[in-house]
Design a protein around this nucleic acid. Sequence first.
DNA 1: AATTCGGGGCC
DNA 2: GGCCCAGAATT
Length: 363
Amino acid sequence: MIKNFPLEQTVKPLLEWFQNNARTLPWRENPTPYHVWVSEIMLQQTRVEAVKPYFERFIKALPEISSLAECEEERLLKLWEGLGYYNRARNMQEAARTVIKEHGGQLPADYEKLLKLKGVGHYTAGAIASIAYGIPVPAVDGNVLRVITRVSADDSDIMKQSFRTKVEGALQAIIPKDQASPFNQALMELGATVCLPGGAPQCDKCPWQDFCEAYRQDLWSEIPVKSKAKPRKIEEKTVFIIQDEEKIVLRKRPSRGLLAGLYEFPNISGHLSEEEALLWLKEQNLSPIRIRKLEPAKHIFSHVEWHMTGYVIRVDELAEQKGNMMFVEQAESEERYPIPAAFGAYTKYINIRLGNEKFSGGS
DNA sequence: AATTCGGGGCC
DNA sequence: GGCCCAGAATT
């Protein structure tokens, strides 16, 4: 792995490079344990540029651990809306309540205790411990794995848990006891800004160029090795934008599974013809006055694709709510309810005025 | 060890 | 279209 590689000699140039090249990031301005924690949860599988505006809004809305612990789930999910992996938010709130109850309201300055918090794994526990408290433990994320495998020309599969554990062990041996925070951040920063994924790395800017085996052997495009994900499943859906003069129909998704607890437009499996759509509406005790077919839309998740079509439907009046259908003021629908980006192609039809198209027949 | 969790930006 | 991202929980 990191064999034949004098890591001790690498620490100084790395730290020096970081001092001169660290990006200005919102969570670096005042790195309290809470700020570090929130940022690290948001940054899981999510790019820095995407996190920035969410982080600033989140900290303003919930400035302390106690405010997170006490926040309504609806509001919490609204703050997370569009960021994805929504269980991160719920898990963080559960952990916040644990911190209040069991740790006197302060994040523990202890790697093992951090690791026990919901939503905090090896990486995040290491990041909080080192960055917020200066505890010398590694924080091995995708950036670190890329940097380490390249500099040592290691062709291990970085998707394997066992390899990540080996890298943690190797880094634990060389992490400077009094510089854990800059050391860990420097490794990640190097991976994020110089030792790039995708395109060509900027080796001419790298403090480790002199002894990088991938550079010497021109292997950057071969390393890191990552086993391929299995192909996504495709699901066909028909989405209904159902509204009267003032209200629109939403549903709350189940509390487990994909997009758990978020709100959606009513939708069912399959691509329905207009006749089938009208039949389904009748089964829901909804009486359409007008209907218009909408353009197809696609949304890609990590493990599934939704291939959607839609109808916008005008009904006379949305009166008593049936089953899991909710009748919501159109003006409040997007303002108040967290609706995932998957439905983004159809949100523009909220409050649309249909003309005279009615039961046009055919597809 | 494998699968399930989002969404977007860049090749 | 494929890849990857400051990963973790569940099965």
